[in-house]
């Protein structure tokens, strides 16, 4: 190392008194801005974009298949709602999971949390975005289903049957939002995409089986499972009007399976070291 290369630093040493810039303290970042940025981050990668696009694509495919393969004379809006609903119950929770975990799997949390040190606000913005996307997705999916219903009636010449009342519609949206929240909570809890997604499917596909097996051998569980099994009450939302006891059971099971992991996960994210 020649001494010549050090020269600029030596002259720079005298620059301590150089213009101390007059600065005003910047305004705090409004929550709306965090919300907008987090929303953009859900769409601005190829994987994010196609995940969102898959909502529309899956709805269209499910609707088309229903028209092609279903018994067209018996098709009602309810048939279409059921067929677009099943891909949604998989895609939406995954969106919920990835909204959180991508910060860790792609290590963008390092930048995100240095630009917005309040992790609570960032996670809050992600949660609001996920829920809004969930609701909008359901509207889109049911809209595609409605188009299918019209097309199918045009083919058969029958009058389209609109047999979904507003309350069922609202319950279907709620059921999917709960699924999305569960995904979001598991994302916070594990902060790893594969772990959280596997966790979601364990809760959704494996636990009902275990619960059923338990119910067949244990009378007490058969009578009281509805107070503990999140799936049994959540699935009721899709087709039946809930009694007040069932609403209460939904509240209890959601607290155990969604609220509790959400709170624990949030606590972990607040304290965890971001590397």
């Amino acid at each position: 190392m020649s001494t010549a290369t050090i020269t600029p630093s030596t002259t720079g040493g005298s620059a301590v008194s150089a213009r101390p810039r007059e600065r005003s303290v910047p305004d705090p970042i409004p929550f709306g801005r965090v919300l907008g940025v987090e929303l953009r981050k859900m769409f601005d990668t190829r994987s994010g974009f196609w995940l969102m696009a898959s909502i529309v694509i899956a709805s269209v495919i499910a609707t088309t298949l229903t028209i092609l393969l279903g018994d067209r004379d018996d098709l009602t809006f309810d048939s279409f709602a059921a067929s677009v609903g099943s891909p949604m119950s998989i895609v939406l929770p995954i969106i919920g999971v990835l909204a959180v975990t991508s910060e860790w799997s792609q290590r963008t949390a390092l930048t995100t949390f240095t630009l917005v040190p309040s992790r609570r606000r960032v996670i809050g913005a992600k949660l609001v975005n996920a829920l809004v996307i969930g609701a909008v997705s359901m509207l889109v999916a049911l809209g595609v289903g409605a188009v299918g219903n019209v097309v199918s009636s045009a083919i058969t010449g029958n009058t389209a049957v609109w047999d979904i009342p507003a309350w069922t519609f609202a319950q279907i949206v709620l059921a999917n939002e709960l699924g999305m929240l569960l995904g979001f909570a598991l994302g916070l809890l594990f902060r790893s995409s594969p772990a959280a997604i596997v966790g979601y499917f364990v809760v959704n596909l494996v636990l009902p089986g275990i619960s059923e097996a338990l119910a067949s051998s244990q009378e007490w569980w058969a009578d009281n499972a509805a107070w503990f099994d999140v799936n049994s009450t959540r699935f009721l939302l899709f087709d039946s009007k809930l009694t007040s006891e069932e609403w209460l059971q939904l509240g209890v099971t959601s607290s155990i399976w969604i609220l509790l992991p959400l709170v624990i996960g949030l606590g972990l994210v607040m304290r965890s070291e971001v590397k």
Partner: peptide, 25 residues
């Protein structure tokens, strides 16, 4: 403390790991 800065990016430029970016952006 850093967390008390209202808009940290306007006052402090940080580069901790250049590879910690979403590879797809």
């Amino acid at each position: 403390p850093f967390a008390a800065l209202p808009n940290p990016g306007r006052e402090v430029g940080v580069l901790l790991d250049a590879s910690a970016q979403h590879a797809g952006r």
